[in-house]
Amino acid sequence: MPQPEPQAIAKRPHGVKTAALVSSGRHPVSGRAGRAREDARAVEMGLALVGADLSLVHAGDPEQASLRESLEGYLGMYHGLDGGRPGDERDGQLSLLPLRAGEDAVAPLAAWLEQRGVRLALTGQRAECGEGSGMVGYLLAERLGWSIATGIAAIECCDEESVTVLQALPQGQRRRLEIRLPCLIAVDAVAEAPRQSAFGPARRGRIETVDDLLPADESRLDTGSADWRWQPARARPKRLKVVKSTNARDRFKAAAAKSSATGGQVLTDLSPEEAAEKLIDYLRAEKILAQDDQ
């Protein structure tokens, strides 16, 4: 695949209202709350694109003790913007959509995005605590009828109509995509590292609670999760590919490879039933589904 050259962001897409969806992170060693790593990259991407015009939103339980700390981590990134002249800098703004226990985040987030006229939403691919299903982006896009692109490494340019991005593929490959707005972009861990969170801007940033988004009677309860059993996530076992090559380069490549797409097949023009058949066959072959499973 030809490797697209990254391009500098051409110009600021004034008029395209941009927001970043952020969540509370969990440090992998200490378990302490803080910026979530991918979400911080999403904020970095947004700040590089629209500067302090970027607005932040979080849906969560406002009573949670460490919440403010995590959210201030994102607000502390509002520095070095607007031409970098201190004094002209604007402080960060975050809308906090309060959720009560058992409520789902998708409905209020969708309502907020619509109400604010956001057309470009950036977020990480999955949360670091809670369900961490990675589904929020898809559900939001479905509900709003937006496009969605995941695994994005960089935004190349953005105008009123569309955004051009680089999508991260295994082994450092990138694919250029042009996506029609409005659109939701899930940022990959290989995107530009987030800038330092500074104490001063974090302290000055404003957190505004927005709680009149949805009519009170609409049920927002996430009924499905009520009878789930929760346990800490474990890293999934990794399939080892034994490479019998005597060639160090091959062995290194095999060891460094993410699950690459070689050996797959591209199936087109199938009816939904045929497609489902093929998928089930594949899952059986990979022993993900038992042979007698329906």
């Binding site: 440090h27 060693v29 201190p86 500074a198 104490f199």
Partner: peptide
């Protein structure tokens, strides 16, 4: 530079982040 501008040198900023998260 550190508190207002967030311009601690990279390695220093990483050390600070670690101090915040892991002491």
């Amino acid at each position: 530079l550190t508190l207002e501008r967030g311009e601690t040198p990279e390695k220093g900023a990483a050390a600070i982040d670690n101090l915040i998260a892991t002491d």
